[in-house]
């Protein structure tokens, strides 16, 4: 099915960014990750978040308005706890201009497309460019091809997603919020990926 993930080779050199409101490291084992989801409407951003945060999947589509805020704390294998603070943004066109409101403070941007929709893949590329232009230079980006369970309707090849993410220094994974495939992996791998790229104190609570 090809739900693989790939880590592009990037030296995680001096990617320091001015320590913002995340400062105050009491316990370096506790991390806080501000994460924003972006992407076309209907690609399943809310479904990914709700699967991750509540373990639920609701097939009836509920259009997100503005942005929803959710948080979830997980424990990694090395007993590090990570608190995710997630902005699940609306994919509707009218909210595009307001996206900076939500991605401004984010350490991680997850850009989602639907593997059955080439339009959503180009929309994802739009978001990548937008973040490269206007986002924080240190923001860690992930490209996520969702609805991987619908492989018979696939219109975006795994290789296309992989190639594009590699070219842009992004983490890449295909997921299915419906079957829960790769959902936890996405968030866990994102932490590893982000910590390898960002100075640890940026993420420490």
């Amino acid at each position: 099915m090809g739900c693989g993930s790939s880590f592009p080779d990037r030296d995680s050199g001096q990617l320091g960014r001015p320590n913002s409101e995340n400062g105050g490291g009491q316990d370096a084992k506790n991390l806080r990750v501000k994460l924003v989801l972006l992407g076309d409407s209907g690609v399943g951003k809310s479904c990914i978040v709700l699967r991750f945060v509540r373990g639920q999947f609701d097939p009836t589509s509920k259009v997100t308005v503005g942005a929803s805020f959710l948080s979830q704390t997980i424990a990694l294998q090395d007993s590090t706890t990570v608190k995710f603070e997630i902005w699940d943004t609306a994919g509707q066109e009218r909210y595009a201009a307001l996206a900076p409101l939500y991605y401004r403070g984010a350490a991680v941007a997850v850009i989602v497309y639907d593997i059955t929709s080439p339009e959503s893949f180009s929309k994802a590329q739009y978001w990548v460019k937008e973040l490269q232009k206007h986002g924080s230079p240190d923001i860690v980006m992930a490209l996520v091809g969702n609805k991987a369970d619908l492989h018979e309707k696939r219109e975006v090849a795994v290789q296309d997603g992989m190639d594009y993410s590699e070219k842009n220094g992004m983490f890449f994974i295909e997921t299915s919020a419906k079957t829960a495939d790769n959902i936890n992996e996405l968030f866990e791998d994102m932490v590893n990926y982000a910590t390898s790229r960002l100075p640890y104190d940026v993420l420490a609570v």
Binding site: V63, V65, S68, F69
Partner: peptide, 17 residues
């Protein structure tokens, strides 16, 4: 009407223009 007819507000706290 806007808030009650938009199901997503029931799912979690939101911030919307």
């Amino acid at each position: 009407n806007f808030v009650m007819s938009s199901e997503s507000f029931r799912t979690s706290e939101s911030f919307s223009p």
